[in-house]
Computed example of a mutant assay.
Amino acid sequence: MKISTYNVENLFDLKKNGYEYKEYIPYTNSGWNDKAYKAKLKNLSRVIKDIDADIIALQEIESLQALKDLQFQLKRDGLYYQYIKIADAKDTVIKVALLSKIPFVYAKDLVVGYSYAFRDILEVKFKINNENLYLFVNHWKSKAGPESMRIAYAKALKKRVQELGKNKNIIALGDFNSHYEEYKTFKRKRKLNDTDGITGINHILGTINYQQNASNTTHTKENEFYNLWYDTQEEKRYSYIYRGKKEALDNILISASLLDEKGLDYKQNSITSFVKPYLYKGKYIYRWQMSKGKIRKHKAKGYSDHLAVVAEFTTNTN
């Protein structure tokens, strides 16, 4: 079973609702129109079809309509995701969503904060080979905000995990806007470190305690997560490139029961960023292209500023 997460970089529909980013207001001088929208859908479909995950978590989807249009484009291109869901209980500008070949038991929004500064987390429960799997799709606050905002997401997630109880199969994935060792990287940045060195991804979710290969992490504690980035070579741990520097903003975190070699389990050494030549332009990720200038215009070329991250899981009951 292949599970992936992909920040698709601003998939907006062509309906004006008043919340759009300026350059995504449809049918204005920025050129967000039928041509640009169709190109964006077609390009994202190419990537998602090449990944061919059983379940793919998405970030930066504006609406259910945009998600349905992507689903339809994928179907036209030969990959059908029958089951879809978007966290749209709160009308934030962009939202998290899910495409799945596997039916889910339920899907619901997990509220992080009532302010529109916080996007909801999407909680989805699956039943696979008579085992429950809980998947949480995240898109935490960007580095435009301090660490305390990302800690709010981590605390909401941890609280829900504690409510679910012990020994559950849990995957938390998405764009955490956090390095797998954020506690090291953000200390030098005063505007980010407003928490006395405490981070959401490392301290609240407990990933700081398990910085080794997956084969050595069976002692992961209750309500703490293992970050799958530790299960591949350090030079491969990235999904984003900022000013020439590779960063790991997108993460897949798993609970201890997915490492116990019983039933549903993580397939060791399977974590990877999804790298294809067409997703690069020189040394940089071939993001969605816009012109520079006073009015930024869509060129109807490119993909996303993030790479997808993919991991595999076995569903053997032996």
Rank of each mutant, 00 (worst) to 15 (best):
Leu135Asn: 03
Ile94Glu: 11
Ile151Leu: 13
Val310Arg: 14
Lys159Trp: 03
Phe186Tyr: 13
Val111Ser: 06
Ile3Pro: 05
Ser304Ile: 03
Ala53Ile: 07
Tyr6Asp: 04
Lys101Tyr: 01
Lys40Arg: 14
Ala154Cys: 03
Asp88Ala: 06
Ala117Pro: 00
Ser304Ala: 01
Gly78Lys: 05
Ser239Cys: 09
Glu234Gly: 01
Ile252Gly: 04
Asp13Leu: 09
Lys85Ile: 00
Lys292Ser: 13
Lys245Phe: 06
Gly78His: 04
Val93Thr: 11
Asn29Lys: 15
Leu99Ala: 06
Leu41Gln: 12
Ser148Met: 07
Asp194His: 03
Ile84Arg: 11
Ile94Phe: 12
Tyr242Lys: 15
Val96Ile: 09
Glu222Ile: 10
Phe118Leu: 11
His298Glu: 10
Lys262Gly: 03
Ser255Ile: 00
Leu58His: 10
Ile121Glu: 05
Phe72Met: 14
Gly174Tyr: 08
Gln289Pro: 02
Ser255Gly: 04
Glu147Ser: 01
Leu249Asn: 12
Leu79Met: 11
Lys294Tyr: 01
Ala89Val: 07
Lys168Trp: 05
Arg237Leu: 07
Glu163His: 08
Glu234Ser: 13
Arg46Phe: 06
Gly263Pro: 03
Lys245Met: 04
Arg190Asn: 07
Tyr106Trp: 12
Lys281Ala: 05
Thr5Glu: 09
Lys245Gln: 11
Lys191Met: 09
Val8Met: 13
Gln73Ile: 03
Leu164Asp: 03
His179Ser: 09
Leu58Tyr: 08
Ile241Arg: 15
Lys245Asn: 08
Thr232Phe: 07
Ile48Leu: 14
Thr92Gly: 06
Asp52Glu: 11
Arg76Ile: 03
Ser239His: 10
Asp88Pro: 05
Lys16Asn: 07
Lys294Arg: 09
Asp91Arg: 14
Gln233Trp: 02
Leu74Pro: 11
Phe225Val: 10
Tyr6Val: 08
Ile252Leu: 12
His139Thr: 04
Ile56Asn: 08
Gly78Pro: 03
Tyr240Thr: 06
Ile25Phe: 08
Glu312Thr: 10
Ser304Asp: 01
Asn213Gly: 07
Glu123His: 13
Ala87Glu: 09
Tyr27Ile: 02
Ser45His: 04
Asn318Ile: 04
Asp175Gly: 01
Lys49His: 12
His298Gln: 12
Glu131Ser: 07
Glu163Gly: 03
Lys22Gln: 11
Ile252Glu: 13
Ile25Gly: 02
Lys246Leu: 10
Leu307Ser: 10
Gln212Val: 01
Gly113His: 02
Gln289Lys: 15
Asn316Arg: 12
Asn43His: 08
His219Arg: 13
Tyr280Ile: 00
Lys276Glu: 11
Tyr116Pro: 08
Arg287Phe: 02
Gly302Trp: 09
Asp52Ser: 09
Gln212Tyr: 05
Ala144Glu: 14
Ser45Ala: 12
Tyr238Ala: 04
Lys187Ala: 07
Val161Trp: 14
Thr185Gln: 12
Val47Asn: 13
Gln65Cys: 00
Tyr183Gly: 02
Glu60Gln: 10
Asn138Thr: 10
Pro103Ala: 02
Asn138Leu: 07
Leu228Ala: 03
Lys22Glu: 13
Ser239Arg: 09
Tyr80Arg: 15
Asn318Ala: 01
Phe176Asn: 04
Val137Leu: 07
Leu67Thr: 01
Thr232Asn: 13
Gly145Val: 02
Ala117His: 05
Asn223Glu: 07
Arg150Trp: 02
Val105Lys: 15
Phe136Met: 14
Ala172Tyr: 06
Lys166Thr: 04
Ile171Asp: 09
Lys108Leu: 06
Ala89Cys: 02
Lys22Thr: 06
